[in-house]
């Protein structure tokens, strides 16, 4: 920035940027959540005194099991199995869903064709797909991929389509006046307009798919995080069920947060347009 050489004839603008800069330093308050966590653990501890450990394991016991799980050799392999299913199903869903959304947004006929289909798939409970997939694909993990894929498509498609509906018609009119070419229209106006809708769709769909993948594994698979929960339940090891639960929740949180963080990375570098610097 070359504030020093700026020639501004009016005084309206400068404080605006200063204010923007100061806003960026938001303080994160962690005291509140910590207090809440302590309260939660306290209630948990009180309740464990009222019920047998077979029904409700204590926080300490759960932590012990958690440490045992994390230290075990197969821990990362188990996670990787689940994440692999998630990535395969999700990638397919994101691509298919985006294409569907784009077709629906760009073409009225396509919209009439696909809209009922998308809403049909969206209204079907995932557990129904699960029942079908277990028969179609068996119990080796493919069923999990299938439900992640099929149930995530409409979420993505609807989000991208929403983006199309919300493209500013005034910008399109501007592009028409200045005779933008078709390519320019798409790359400079349509795609940037869709970006934020695509991003929010992505974040929603990741959380959604993560829950589906666990459900799928609990019901159908002999590998991955979900199958560990099933095993623990079959053996009536409640502390293990809880411990795996904690792993699942933490991983889901981590996934969503890191994706949100990745997507909100903004161009920080301001381009320099000084002719002398070339």
């Amino acid at each position: 920035m070359k504030r020093s050489t700026t020639k501004v004839n009016n005084l309206e603008s400068l404080p605006l940027h200063e204010a923007n800069k100061n806003n960026k330093k938001k303080q994160v308050n962690i005291v509140g959540p910590m207090v809440l966590l302590c309260c939660f653990l306290l209630v948990w501890q009180i309740l464990t005194n009222m019920y047998p450990p077979l029904v409700l394991p204590s926080p300490v016991k759960t932590l012990e099991s958690l440490l045992k799980i994390v230290q075990s050799e197969s821990f990362l392999l188990i996670i990787w199995t689940t994440v692999k299913s998630l990535i395969v199903g999700l990638t397919g869903a994101i691509i298919t869903g985006s294409i569907l959304g784009i077709l629906m947004g760009a073409n009225e006929r396509m919209k009439c064709l696909f809209e009922p289909l998308v809403y049909f798939v969206q209204s079907t409970p995932p557990i129904l797909y699960m029942s079908l997939a277990m028969i179609w694909f068996g119990l080796d993990g493919q069923a999990t991929i299938f439900i992640v894929f099929i149930a995530s498509i409409p979420v993505m498609a609807v989000n991208v389509y929403e983006g199309f509906e919300n493209i500013d018609p005034k910008l399109l009119e501007m592009a028409k006046i200045f005779k933008f070419s078709k390519v320019k229209m798409i790359t400079q106006i349509i795609i940037p307009s869709l970006k934020s809708y695509f991003k929010s769709g992505l974040i929603i769909v990741i959380g959604f798919a993560w829950k589906l993948v666990i459900m799928g594994e609990v019901l159908s698979s002999s590998t991955g995080l979900g199958s560990q929960i099933t095993d623990a339940r079959t053996n009536v090891q409640m502390d293990m069920v809880f411990a795996w639960g904690v792993v699942v929740i933490l991983l889901c949180f981590l996934f969503q947060k890191s994706m949100a963080g990745l997507l909100s990375l903004k161009r920080i570098r301001r381009k320099n347009y000084d002719l002398n610097n070339e």
Partner: peptide, 15 residues
């Protein structure tokens, strides 16, 4: 001049 790299939301209405 000097504001070439600024985005519209960083500018005032007049600018």
């Amino acid at each position: 001049k000097g504001f070439e790299g600024y985005y519209p939301q960083e500018l005032s209405g007049g600018m």
